[in-house]
């Protein structure tokens, strides 16, 4: 299978070997990865709960989204970069792992949902949150929680 061959090739590259043999690299990159997840979770929690009408209802949804959306994007970039380093160091742990691909699918889904339902709010600063957007807000919080569970379970499957 292509992925397996690619994973084996990647595992043997000098970069991957170097990452594995320098003992502090993987825990350090994983720490950065968790810190970036915390940024996404904190930003998503406040944004989604505002859109769901639970907190900060005295502030316009556009104000809240405008404050935290750039943080979610920046944190996602850090997550993609640190995640890539972790894949390069240990390809077999991820590329051949179903949980890893479920996680990637969920992250992509969360990305698309965030993009499509937040952009309109950025344009209309004091716009009212539609009912579907409220449901999407709760759904996104659930998706991020499942992403965290998948992330931890990658190490065990």
């Amino acid at each position: 299978m292509f992925l397996q061959t690619f994973g084996e090739w990647l595992y043997d590259t000098p970069v991957a070997t170097g990452l594995r043999e320098t003992t502090w690299v993987i825990p350090a990159v994983q720490s950065i990865h968790i810190l970036a997840i915390a940024v996404v979770i904190g930003s998503a929690l406040v944004s989604e709960l505002r859109l769901a009408g639970v907190i900060a209802t005295d502030e316009a949804p556009g104000t809240v989204v405008r404050r935290y959306l750039p943080w979610i994007w920046r944190a996602l970039i850090v997550l993609l970069l640190s995640g890539t380093v972790l894949i390069v160091a240990e390809p077999a742990r991820t590329l051949g792992n179903t949980v890893f691909w479920i996680k990637m699918g969920l992250v992509l889904g969360a990305f698309v949902l965030t993009l499509s339902f937040r952009r309109p709010l950025l344009v209309a600063a004091d716009g009212v949150v539609s009912e579907p957007a409220k449901a999407i807000a709760w759904l996104l919080l659930v998706v991020w929680v499942v992403v965290i569970f998948c992330g931890r379970f990658i190490a065990y499957t």
Partner: peptide
């Protein structure tokens, strides 16, 4: 997983 979720909520809100 629950521990990581809790920590990201603690750190995310405290941040």
């Amino acid at each position: 997983s629950l521990h990581v979720l809790a920590i990201t909520l603690v750190f995310g809100t405290i941040l």
